[in-house]
């Protein structure tokens, strides 16, 4: 089990499917300060690829870690700028 980054905020998107996890993650990141880490808890398995793709294609965010446990897909996204 990898060590999880410490999150500043948690976003619960359990039960929501594409595109909501991405759209809500973007909105939550917008409300954070640089250096903050957002924990996104999803049940959508597609979020593993989608959050990674979104973080790669978006300036000012960095995907720190993705964890799959108990049918949950948990993502740690840092707002870098």
């Amino acid at each position: 089990m990898s060590s999880k980054p410490t999150a500043t905020e948690t976003l619960d998107v359990k039960g929501q499917s594409c595109p909501m996890p991405i759209v809500k993650t973007k909105q939550a990141i917008d409300d954070l300060e640089a250096g903050d880490v957002l924990e996104v808890v999803a049940t959508d398995s597609g979020s593993m690829s989608d959050i990674r793709g979104w973080a790669d294609g978006t300036d000012g965010v960095e995907l720190l870690e993705q964890v799959e446990e108990d049918e949950l897909y948990i993502h740690y996204v840092e707002k870098t700028a």
Partner: peptide, 11 residues
């Protein structure tokens, strides 16, 4: 709408 909202999330 899915593509539009996702693209907006990409900025």
């Amino acid at each position: 709408l899915i593509l539009a909202s996702t693209a907006a999330a990409f900025g």
